[in-house]
């Protein structure tokens, strides 16, 4: 049995909304995550850095059990992910927003239908007008209110990414998992997205994990940074810790835009 949210509220999990302990995940003989332990605290923006292929996407997919992990423990909002039954998993997923690296817009649906899809299924209590208002608000947030009736195939890559971000925030999740929210966007839009991430965090008190290669985005949004390397957490600290670090690997990451 999982432990309900209420039950654990007064205890240590009230502070940390996601607790990952000794997570291990491999595909066949390829070990991707060998030993990852990580905490996400209430209301913070945790930036995850790491080389391409270091398993960042795999890590956040394990958090909502899109991928089953091999060993270790993941606790999200008091739910023990490894042992959840399907009903509870569904309930938990309603509280977690997931921005996919590829955007993952449904290409057989218009932008409006794309946003409606999670909204009608997760926030069943809303009436028609509230749904429309929320859709419009989310689209305005990403600056694409006029794309409402377009098909994803009519949008550019960056626009698709923004629509998909709108689709994630439209349901007001309490935890957000962003997989490279600014990759492939121009500097101006990336900046706007970073601002938006901060706004969402302040407005709805969400806790977020942000995977990114974009150091500017990390600078803007991070309350804390962890770096993933060789299947484990390589370094954890604040932005200044990272910027002051002498470690060659970390330097390589922060060099790209010297300030």
């Amino acid at each position: 049995m999982y432990r309900g949210f209420e039950e654990t509220r007064g205890k240590e999990s009230a502070e940390s909304v996601v607790v990952i302990e000794n997570l291990k995940k491999s595909f066949g003989n390829e070990v991707v995550l060998s030993n990852v332990s990580l905490k996400l605290f209430q209301g913070e923006n945790l930036v995850v850095l790491g080389k391409s292929g270091s398993g960042k996407s795999v890590l956040i997919k394990c958090i909502v059990r899109l991928l089953a992990f091999d060993e270790g423990k993941i606790n999200v909002l008091g739910y023990n992910i490894g042992e959840l039954n399907n009903t509870d998993l569904g309930e938990l997923r309603k509280k977690v927003g997931f921005l996919f690296q590829s955007g993952a817009l449904y290409d057989s649906m218009t932008v409006r239908q794309n946003l409606e899809f999670p909204l009608l299924r997760i926030r069943k209590e809303l009436n028609r007008k509230e749904v429309d208002d929320k859709i419009l608000e989310a689209l305005e947030n990403v600056g694409l209110a006029d794309a409402l009736e377009k098909m994803p195939s009519q949008l550019s890559g960056g626009m698709r990414k923004r629509i998909s971000l709108a689709r994630t925030i439209v349901v007001d999740p309490s935890i957000m998992l962003y997989d490279e929210p600014t990759t492939g966007l121009d500097p101006v839009t990336s900046q706007e997205i970073s601002v938006l991430i901060n706004e969402v965090q302040k407005k709805y008190k969400t806790s977020s994990i942000i995977i990114t290669h974009d150091i500017e985005c990390a600078r803007k949004t991070a309350t804390r940074i962890v770096m993933l390397q060789d299947g484990a957490i390589y370094k954890e600290g604040s932005l200044t810790d990272f910027e002051k670090s002498d470690d060659a690997l970390i330097k390589a990451f922060f060099m790209q835009s010297g300030t």
């Binding site: 909502v64 899109l66 997923r93 996919f100 955007g103 993952a104 899809f117 299924r121 997760i122």
Partner: peptide, 20 residues
């Protein structure tokens, strides 16, 4: 082809996290 491309572009996973 349709479901295959939905799988490859993570649309199926997106549905799973949308309580569907």
């Amino acid at each position: 082809a349709e479901l295959g491309s939905m799988k490859v572009t993570e649309q199926i996973e997106a549905m799973e996290v949308s309580a569907t």
